[in-house]
């Protein structure tokens, strides 16, 4: 298969890499190698009050051709997320924004309701809106209808590395929502990323799993390969094992008649 042709699209932009890398929790000097080993074309980052002059800035460490995806972490409601989005666009110069709205500091679970509101406003302003969300079908439909470019359901609570705890619900979203479904948060191992891709996810986003690995550049590459493997498996059509076997002793089709004129 020609890997180059297997792209997915966000807001009219085509991407060949299906691994979105988070940039949190690294020492800055490792980020470049990590992005390169991951083959990532999209890297997320957060917005914070700036350090006074002279200190190192993350943008100095991100390769030029990478699409910056600022998130709205820290936002507790739609209005705060919208404010962060506007500020982020000033720096990134692009309209990509990942909506993250949490009002729960213990589990960091996203607030779908506020997220739908933020998507609605920002999509109308022309942002490429990528909402991080709890995998709920009704909210996902609302986000789609509000103009989201994709949906980013969580696999497990952020940073837990617990994998696809919400698997059945993500499957439903993949089936029902005609937008890229990008599994975000909770992916702890390459095998879990691979499984998400086998299920038909458009991409996987990971951060903690890479940032906390023993050798983080190597882990970035491991994720890259697992995501590609999962994608290939999905495209090739998984062989399936039947659970239920026909019971030949009680056929259901015995009633059929070939000559069926009036009886």
């Amino acid at each position: 298969m020609d890997q180059k042709k297997d792209t997915f699209s966000l807001g009219g932009h085509e991407f060949t890499s299906r691994f979105i890398l988070g940039s949190g929790k690294y020492s800055l000097d490792l980020i470049r190698a990590c992005v390169e080993n991951a083959g990532a074309q999209i890297v997320t980052m957060a917005l914070r009050r700036a350090n006074e002059g002279g200190l190192a800035n993350i943008l100095d460490y991100i390769p030029e051709n990478v699409t910056l995806l600022p998130n709205t972490s820290g936002a507790r409601n739609a209005d705060e997320a919208i404010r962060i989005a506007h500020l982020s666009r000033e720096i990134s110069g692009s309209s990509f924004i990942k909506i993250e709205i949490m009002r729960d500091t213990k589990y960091l679970l996203p607030d779908n309701y506020e997220t739908v509101r933020a998507v609605d406003v920002l999509a109308k302003e022309g942002f490429v809106v990528m909402p991080y969300m709890y995998p709920d079908l009704n909210s996902a439909r609302d986000m789609r209808d509000a103009g989201a470019a994709c949906i980013m359901p969580l696999g497990a609570p952020i940073g837990t590395n617990k994998g696809l705890a919400t698997k059945e619900f993500i499957k439903i979203l993949i089936r029902e929502i005609d937008l890229p479904v990008i599994v975000d948060a909770g992916i702890g191992r390459p095998s879990q990323a691979c499984e998400a891709m086998e299920m038909g996810a458009a991409a996987v986003m990971a951060n903690t799993a890479v940032a906390t690995a023993g050798n983080i550049q190597m882990m970035a590459e491991a994720f890259k390969k697992s995501i590609e493997a999962g994608r290939l498996a999905y495209l090739s059509g998984l062989g399936r094992v039947r659970e239920d076997r026909a019971d030949a002793s009680s056929p259901l089709t015995g009633f059929l008649r070939d000559d069926e004129r009036e009886e």
């Binding site: 988070g22 940039s23 949190g24 929790k25 690294y26 800055l28 980020i31 997320t44 980052m45 957060a46 917005l47 914070r48 009050r49 700036a50 350090n51 800035n57 993350i58 943008l59 910056l68 600022p70 998130n71 972490s73 404010r83 506007h86 500020l87 982020s88 000033e90 720096i91 990134s92 952020i158 948060a185 986003m205 951060n207 903690t208």
Partner: peptide, 29 residues
């Protein structure tokens, strides 16, 4: 609460009581 476009930095005067935020990117997921 109003974003100042970069081209206006030189012409925007600050005034008593202004609330100024200067933000930048940092690592984040």
């Amino acid at each position: 609460l109003a974003i100042i476009p970069k081209k206006d930095y030189g012409s925007t005067l600050l005034a008593e009581g202004d609330v100024v935020e200067i933000v930048s990117f940092m690592g984040g997921g």
